[in-house]
Amino acid sequence: MSSAAHQCSKTLWEEGRRPGQEVASLTVALLLTATVLDLLLSDGLGLFFDLAFVSLCVGAALTVRPRDFFVIGVLPPLAMALVVLLLAVSDRASIARPDDGLAQAAISGLSRHGLALAFGYAACLGLLAMRRSFVERHPR
């Protein structure tokens, strides 16, 4: 392989070049879309939402440019909290018992999807850490 061809090919860790605000906005929009689809397909927030959440966390971590890692590093818990709070206000039965109060419904929703939050957040932070390490070892 020639050195020119080697320099042109980028690794997975170098690919992300999108601004953090753009990636965060798209991630939240896709997460809200997945929420609506999950609620259309089932009675409450379920496995489809959890899988979409984890996938979106991974995608965001791989898409963002290095100088905006912080924005994506704080996104997963905030995005999950946003969805849960919106549902606690609009469709409480989808995340908790219908007679639960707002705060209790929000906490119930977060706890029911805590595993997805933990996996998504861990994957996001782990990928950002690997990308940061790679960027520091291979400066342009």
Score class of each variant (00 low, 15 high):
Val58Thr: 08
Met130Tyr: 00
Leu128Tyr: 04
Arg92Phe: 13
Ala5Glu: 14
Gly44Cys: 04
Pro98Leu: 12
Leu78Phe: 09
Ala29Glu: 01
Ala123Cys: 14
Val84Asp: 07
Ser133Val: 03
Ser55Phe: 09
Ser108Leu: 02
Gly126His: 08
Leu40Gln: 14
Arg65Phe: 00
Val84Trp: 07
Thr63Leu: 00
His6Gln: 09
Ala93Leu: 05
Gly46Ser: 13
Pro76Thr: 11
Trp13Leu: 15
Ala29Val: 11
Phe53Gln: 05
Phe49Pro: 03
Ala52Cys: 06
Val23Gln: 08
Leu125Arg: 15
Ala4Trp: 03
Thr27Gln: 10
Val71Ile: 14
Arg131His: 02
Ser133Gln: 14
Ala103His: 01
Asp38Glu: 10
Phe53Glu: 02
Ala106Gly: 10
Val71Thr: 15
Ile72Asn: 09
Leu125His: 04
Gly109Trp: 06
Ala60Met: 05
Pro77Cys: 06
Phe69Glu: 02
Phe134Arg: 08
Gln7Cys: 03
Val64Leu: 07
Arg18Phe: 08
Leu62Tyr: 12
Ser2Thr: 11
Gln21Met: 04
Arg18Trp: 13
Gly101Phe: 09
Pro139His: 05
Leu85Thr: 02
Gln21Glu: 05
Leu45Gly: 10
Ala5Thr: 10
Arg65Glu: 12
Thr11Arg: 08
Arg97Gln: 15
Met130Leu: 15
Leu32Gly: 03
Glu22Thr: 03
Thr33Met: 10
Ala93Val: 12
Tyr121Cys: 11
Pro139Leu: 07
Phe70Leu: 14
Val74Asp: 00
Pro66Asp: 07
Ala123Asn: 01
Ser111Lys: 11
Ala106Arg: 03
Leu40Lys: 13
Arg17Cys: 13
Ala122Ser: 15
Gln104Ala: 15
His113Cys: 06
Ala61Asn: 12
Gln104Ser: 15
Gly46Lys: 13
Phe53Arg: 02
Leu37Glu: 03
Thr33Ser: 08
Leu102Asn: 10
Gln7Thr: 09
Val64Arg: 04
Pro66Thr: 06
Leu39Asn: 11
Gly44Glu: 05
Ala105Trp: 04
Ala96Ile: 00
Val54Tyr: 01
Ala123Tyr: 01
Leu37Cys: 11
Leu47Arg: 12
His6Phe: 05
Val83Asn: 13
Leu127Val: 01
Leu87His: 04
Phe48Trp: 12
Gly114Ser: 06
Ser3Pro: 07
Glu15Ala: 14
Ala81Glu: 09
Ala34Arg: 10
Gln104Pro: 03
Thr63Lys: 07
Leu56Cys: 00
His138Val: 00
Val74Ala: 14
Ala5Cys: 06
Leu128Asn: 05
Ala129Thr: 07
Gln21His: 01
Ser108Tyr: 04
Ala123Leu: 13
Leu102Asp: 12
Val74Gly: 13
Arg132Lys: 13
Arg92Ser: 13
Pro139Ala: 04
Leu45Met: 12
